[in-house]
Amino acid sequence: MSPAAPPVLSVLDLVPVRSDQSSGDAIAATLALARVADEHGYRRYWLAEHHNMPAVAATNPPLLAAMVAGATGRIRVGSGGVMLPNHAPLVVAEQFALLEAAFPGRVDLGIGRAPGTDPVTSWALRHGAGGVDADAVDRFPDHVDHVIAMMSPDGAALRLATGDHVLRATPRATSVPTIWLLGSSDYSARLAASRGLPYVFAHHFSGRGTAEALALYRGHYEPSADHPEPRTFLTVNAVVAATTEEARRLALPNIRSMVALRTGQPLRASQLVEAAEADVPAPGHQPLIDDMLHRWVIGSPGEAAARITALAAEHGVDEVMVSPVAGAFAGTPADRAPAREETLRLLAGAL
């Protein structure tokens, strides 16, 4: 039996902000990173949605996706994902239909139902739209259906006493973005299966429950006209460098940030490598650090390629989306992320 083909690679970007960067620097670094992904054959480039986090500038996926699409020529762009309860469905439909009109055949709309932030910021996001948290989350399936309908050429009809009022995200749509449902539990897996939609489990975030969620999705999948077969891929955090030792050093700043997030410490911009090395973790945090070092793809090009190929085979996928989480050393240009760029170059070369 011939060996399985290596998986196709894609990118998930949270637009990290280092302690030596402004938000503008972080965005410039993301555009440079996207150009590297485009040049090296990565399939898609997704931007996350997070709010009120000092270490993350990805607050607005459609705006960032437009910037990335304009800075690249081939790669698909999209959201990983838009947190739909934070937004009116028509606004999301209009944003991504407009992206598709400008960059036809290159746009993905990944949709999630998590807040992507703390409870207070979540309230501020949703209260401004006239809704409440519970209502926005409970109506998530309906809102997904509304977004899909409003982006179609026929639009979505609202039944009024005076007759139907049709809502269209763009006046004359000739194509629509590909819709993906995202999740870290079995809820979105079931919903995606019932709607015949592509689905992605947040393996990079939790690392647990992936096999069960994918089995549930595949086992309950109801074919749709656009997607007769279930469609999914794997997401992983990755740091690739010339040596394993260097990769582990470059992973430290992001590991420190994740430990802070999960233990309720104050959030701050991502440390430089030297600061992260000098910051001795509390003894009780070491198991968290060890778990991330074990789950993430951290190593030399050969090691990383072998690990990603094995993960793809284990979960039965032909695409792996990497979140390049390498930090930076002191003296790195503020508007670039060389270690993140090198992660993409080395990984593409090894696969």
Rank of each mutant, 00 (worst) to 15 (best):
P61N: 10
N60M: 07
G80K: 00
V82G: 06
S79W: 02
V120D: 11
L99V: 14
M83C: 06
T117F: 10
A129N: 09
L84Q: 02
L99K: 10
R126T: 09
V82P: 03
V147W: 07
F140G: 04
A97C: 10
E100F: 08
I148N: 00
A114M: 03
T117N: 14
I111D: 13
T72M: 10
D145G: 05
M150W: 07
V144I: 13
A69V: 04
M67H: 03
D108R: 04
I75M: 09
A129H: 07
G128R: 13
A124E: 15
H146K: 09
L98P: 04
A57H: 11
L98D: 07
M150N: 08
L84P: 02
M150G: 02
L99G: 11
V56M: 14
M150V: 12
G73L: 13
V120E: 13
V120W: 08
R74F: 08
D142W: 14
A134C: 06
S122K: 11
A93C: 01
A69K: 06
G130N: 07
A101C: 00
V120R: 11
V91H: 09
T59W: 09
H87T: 02
R76T: 03
L84C: 07
P85L: 03
A136Q: 09
A58Q: 02
A71Y: 14
F96K: 02
G130E: 05
A57C: 14
W123Y: 15
W123V: 08
P62S: 05
P61G: 12
G81E: 01
P62F: 00
G70Y: 04
F103D: 05
A134P: 05
L158I: 11
G131D: 07
V147S: 08
A102K: 01
A156H: 14
P141D: 12
P115N: 06
V144C: 10
S152Y: 00
P141N: 12
G81W: 04
T72E: 10
M150H: 05
P89D: 08
V92S: 10
G110N: 04
P61F: 11
N86K: 06
G78P: 00
A58V: 02
L63G: 12
D154E: 15
H87R: 06
G110A: 08
G105A: 10
R74S: 15
L109N: 00
P104Y: 03
V132M: 09
S152K: 00
G78L: 00
L98G: 11
D133S: 12
L84E: 04
A149S: 06
E94V: 06
L98T: 15
A149Q: 02
L90V: 09
V120Q: 12
R126D: 03
Q95M: 05
P61K: 11
M151F: 03
A55S: 13
A93F: 01
P119F: 09
M151T: 04
D138L: 14
F96V: 05
R139S: 11
A102F: 13
L64A: 14
N60Y: 03
T59Y: 04
L64E: 07
D135S: 02
